[in-house]
Design a protein around this nucleic acid. Structure first.
Lengths: 343, 343
DNA sequence: ACCCCGAGTCGAAACGCTTCGACTTTCTTT
DNA sequence: AAAGAAAGTCGAAGCGTTTCGACTCGGGGT
């Protein structure tokens, strides 16, 4: 609770010298600096946050808006929040949480009262109302996820299309001709943003590679274990030799269970590759190759962009799609001799 | 971005009058008030957060520390965070998120720089390091959860002991004599706080009621579906006529699956009651009676206490244990005639 | 006619910091 | 030896509020 005046007095210098010693914005004599540091330690001084916000033009706070919709996958979401907080902290920023209705009302509020330097948008929906809001306020805003209408916005996300295409092409290269795609719950294709993008991309790449593609989802409104399993069973019955998975970890497990029960093994009998998973597919019962959605990657970049927006020239609006990185666990190989090609 | 000076000019009054009109701390003439309100609307004025913190002695921000340990159950945790944010917002407070290592370092930091008015502690461990920290700083701190050493701390939580006892006594009243307790994963009994309390209380109450009690857990380090199911199977084999569940929603489902597979029905053949669940046990395949852990209840109270701590007299240190409320879904009845009592 | 009180308003002093301009010293350059 | 430049320091001006004390003006009590 000591203030800069007390520190200055204790060190026998003026308050401006203390300020400069701490910020390093002007040179301070080594000896003076030492006395100041000592006074700071002795008094347990820490610059008052409010005063700092007022005097400097920075609050050192980012808002994080997250509506937390019903179908939000909690573990994944938490990874994003955590990744954002960690990334922000690396640059001396704190995270102010705006959830629920505050995701919108709060956004307007903190933009108006200058509580935050920038806003990070999580849990982005295709028709997200925060898009319009972002255009109205002049607090820099970065979307982690891509809404349908993203004109003029700064958005960061995994390049899902590229990831999906790569997954398919990996299977094509391995010699598969008939593959199955197991997507998320049907509802996700409307309320969320990337599932449709993934599915479309898978479809296109399969066509380009001249492969047969069979589609399935893992439930109607939410992923159920049974639906996921049924999807896998149906596809196997239909003679696919490989799966592209784009779904939750539970669904991955269900697919593996079905494969296992049939006495099939991965990758000898069935190849599997996962797209956009944000959990560790290497620690599944059977480790699975993956083109993961890495929260840290998106969030780090989002924070960088937010920071950049505070500088002289704002970053150009537009999509920043992160190239997918393949993680290999040995779940992909050539299809079994007898079951290659057509059924 | 307008400031109070511009509003004052627009309304033709001094800035102090504007301030009083907005805070209501001194009377302002109706006509003057109207002109000020109009100016505020026209200019889109919102008092600057930093200036407010400096001048007033309130920041209108609470810190929420949550280490997010490995075994934290994401959905439950998110409910708590959400409930806290909502409760805080009702009193015009925002939430600053301190996760990961920042749960501790950040606590010290925000206490030192006065960024927050109070600190709310989530995800409390039995030997939580934040306990010591809380004693050192003078920012009011409220624990949502009860650490082992809680001397001098303000803690809020469900009265797990009471809930556990009530669950057992409900079964006793229904006529059961041999019941099974299915707890959380073994690891939870060391890293988390309330599981041991629940188990002890169940044991004591069973003894008091003269019932036979059999114990089981749902895994070693983390809850697995199979372990939960096996636990249920073992207990049924041992002839229990009722279950007290204290575990995750997946484990609830597993228990129900085992019961179902044996052709038994709830509550005719087996009674089930859940303790400390923070999900809706009414929307399980078979709705289950519950003595739930309600995040809103704990978080609302925690926020009230934090607020109180900012007033003249700080709330007295000590535990605030919330009385459990039983939610009935019809999963408890008398034991089947042939299987009552001893095996 | 007097005083007092409350309503209504204003000016100015904090709040604790950052930062600009100016000043003194001490070195380098030419 | 004169002229700069750079280092090092200080005072003071903000930043945008809140809040205290003081002032004015009517209306009631005496």
């Amino acid at each position: 609770m000591a203030n800069i005046t007390e520190v200055a007095a204790a060190a026998g210098v003026s308050i401006s010298t203390v300020s400069y010693a701490l910020s390093g914005k002007r040179p301070v004599a080594p000896d003076t600096r030492r006395r100041i540091e000592m006074a700071v330690r002795d008094l347990g001084y820490s610059p008052n946050a409010g005063a700092r916000m007022l005097a400097g033009r920075r609050t050192q706070i980012f808002a994080l808006t997250e509506p937390l919709r019903r179908d939000t996958h909690a573990p994944t979401h938490m990874s994003f929040v955590l990744a954002t907080a960690v990334a922000a902290r690396r640059h001396d920023y704190d995270i102010l949480l705006l959830t629920d209705e505050q995701a919108q009302a709060g956004m307007r509020r903190v933009a108006a009262n200058g509580l935050v330097d920038a806003i990070l948008v999580l849990d982005v929906a295709p028709d997200d109302p925060r898009v319009e809001l972002a255009r109205q306020i002049d607090t820099p805003t970065v979307f982690i996820g891509v809404p349908d209408d993203n004109e003029g916005l700064v958005c960061v996300d995994l390049d899902f299309e590229a990831a999906a295409a790569e997954a398919v092409s990996v299977l094509a290269d391995a010699g598969h001709h008939r593959i199955g795609f197991i997507g998320q719950a049907d509802a996700a294709y409307e309320t969320s943003n990337f599932p449709p993008r993934v599915r479309r991309s898978v479809r296109e790449e399969a066509e380009r590679c001249g492969m047969e593609l069979l589609l399935a989802t893992t439930g109607t409104t939410r992923t159920t274990r049974e639906a996921a399993r049924r999807a896998a069973a149906d596809l196997l019955d239909a003679g696919v030799t490989a799966f592209v998975l784009h779904c939750l970890d539970e669904a991955h497990a269900s697919v593996l269970a079905e494969v296992d029960e049939r006495g099939l093994s991965v990758p000898e009998d069935v190849s599997i590759i996962s797209v956009g998973a944000s959990f560790d597919t290497g620690s599944l019962a059977t480790p699975i190759d993956s083109l993961p959605l890495v929260p840290e990657a998106s969030c780090d970049l989002a924070v960088e962009l937010a920071l950049e927006a505070l500088g002289d020239q704002r970053p150009e609006p537009g999509l920043r799609l992160l190239a997918p990185t393949r993680v290999v666990h040995g779940s992909v190989s050539t299809p079994p001799a007898g079951r290659t090609g057509t059924v």
